[in-house]
Design a protein around this nucleic acid. Structure first.
Lengths: 207, 207
DNA sequence: AAAAAATGTTGACGATGTCTACATGAAAAA
DNA sequence: TTTTTCATGTAGACATCGTCAACATTTTTT
């Protein structure tokens, strides 16, 4: 209330909703300010009362995506926090699924430079929340003795790199030679995440 | 000769050269058909005699990127093919460096759906060449007994996912909490690739 | 030398991002 | 309650972009 339902009634949220829908239907290329205004039944310049420019709107959309990712990871932790290995595998699976179910959104989330807190506070905190969820999972694994000696942060980054890479390759169809449909991709993903887990569990190794 | 130096003299190559330059200076957003024409000193519609549309030009640019990637990997194999573990680590390093040195190009290469051979033959074969180089490295590793029992293709995909993920996260500045400058990022990358190698070397594991 | 094909130019069209000027409706101040 | 102020939305304009069609010119083929 207060300041968002003047004329239209919460246009900002409506724009983001429409944007998310358009993003997956038309891809990021079809997501234009003007199309968004049309979809919301508003004049072509109206969005500029709520977003400084297109980049600002895209950042707000990406923040939504990161929030959803963080939620997902937190939910997995709640469900399987007592079994770190299972938590790890389920979290990886959910992460990959999330990317495959909304590829344009996923690309949007990671397609731009990470914003400093000054640039896009909303996006920055949402992204940090997602990463924190991952760090938590790693800490539990370490506490349970599942993980080896390497610094937790490096391990977390390794996991993130792996899962992010899998998701990106899956989205762009580059896993197809190995895995055709969704189920095969998820199975392959689990296998690959497992491989990494073996490495994480092994003794520290010199390079 | 023959058919590429009529009026301008090999405009197609000139466009791609200018495109590559513009890509890293202005980012993919600043790479427009018209800017490209300007940079090449030619009218704004001239590029359409050599590329069907913008997507076609971008695909040709991406093909260059993949060709360079394949070259890099082949060179590493030539230099360190006798030592699979070293080949692996050096290849990973070069891969990440390539992405960090030309982030816009790297993004362009992986930013779109993998094309079928029908759509973009040039791009498809260039991409395949790069992947083949990776497969070759994995096969040598297996022959040398460095790698475990899991299917070579799954292992190759795991490596690719990992390195791709690292590169993407590095490009978007998301490794910064762990590694500030280029050297630290490369060191972290090597550490993470090492972790995965431990997993690849381990016995096959059930999931 | 003439015809055909390849290549480049000009001009146009619709779409987009974004700005400025203006209108309108709600909230705050009087 | 009336008035002022501010937030929000509209209308119109501008430069840029991707792309197409019509035309000109140069090279190749016949």
């Amino acid at each position: 209330m207060a300041q968002d339902d003047y004329h239209h009634g919460n246009l900002r949220q409506a724009l983001l909703d429409a944007g998310e829908k358009l993003l997956e239907i038309e891809g990021v290329a079809g997501l234009s300010m003007r199309a968004l205004a049309r979809a919301t039944g508003v004049s072509h310049a109206a969005p500029y009362r709520h977003f400084a420019d297109k980049a600002d709107l895209l950042a707000a959309l990406a923040a939504r995506g990161f929030a959803r990712l963080a939620e997902t990871l937190v939910a997995v932790a709640a469900a399987h926090g007592d079994n770190p290995q299972r938590e790890y595998l389920v979290a990886c699976r959910r992460y990959i699924e999330l990317g495959m179910d909304a590829p344009a959104m996923y690309r949007l989330m990671f397609g731009q430079q990470q914003p400093g807190v000054g640039d896009q506070p909303e996006l920055a905190v949402a992204g940090q929340a997602a990463f924190d969820a991952l760090l938590g999972a790693m800490a539990r694994g370490r506490a349970a003795g599942t993980l080896g000696e390497v610094a937790t942060e490096a391990q977390a980054m390794a996991v993130w790199s792996m899962v992010h890479g899998i998701t990106e390759l899956a989205i762009s169809g580059r896993l197809e030679p190995c895995a055709g449909d969704r189920l095969e991709i998820l199975a392959l993903g689990e296998q690959m995440c497992s491989l990494l887990l073996s490495g994480l569990a092994a003794r520290e190794r010199a390079t």
